[in-house]
Structures are given as structure tokens and as C-alpha cells.
């Protein structure tokens, strides 16, 4: 069952990658503000042009 270990390895690397992304997000202050982003997305500037 080599493939089991391969899959676990691959899945672990993906998971560790996401862990790194998570740590980056927390450290770089992405989540310092956990309210206003949800409100800001509601404001779009008016549509300028359809091309």
C-alpha cells in the first residue's frame, strides 16, 4: 500500500502549505480587523464601462 503513504505525504504537504499561509495571514495582520471587510465588500463604485 505504497500509495497510502504517498497520499498522506502529499496531503500533509498541502496541509503544511496551508498552515504556512495561515501563519502568514495572521502575522501580516490580515485578520486584525475581523468585521469591516465584510461591510466594505458591499460598497462598489458605480459601473463605468461595459466592454
Amino acid at each position: 500500500m505504497t500509495v497510502v503513504f504517498l497520499l498522506i505525504l502529499v496531503s500533509l504537504v498541502v496541509a503544511l502549505g496551508f498552515l504556512a499561509a495561515f501563519l502568514w495571514a495572521v502575522r501580516s495582520g490580515q485578520y486584525d480587523d475581523d468585521y469591516t471587510p465584510s461591510v466594505r465588500i458591499l460598497f462598489d463604485e458605480k459601473q463605468t464601462e461595459n466592454d
Binding site: T2, L6, L9, V10, V13, V14, G17, A20, A21
Partner: peptide, 19 residues
């Protein structure tokens, strides 16, 4: 994230040789 993706693809390559 790009780096992550590259790693992911590299791993795909490794699986190919493993079996």
C-alpha cells in the same frame, strides 16, 4: 501562494517516479 502551487506540482512529479 505561487510557490506553494509549484511545490504541489513538483510533488505530483515525484509521485510519478515513485511507483
Amino acid at each position: 501562494m505561487l510557490l506553494l502551487a509549484t511545490i504541489a506540482i513538483l510533488i505530483g512529479g515525484i509521485i510519478e517516479i515513485f511507483p
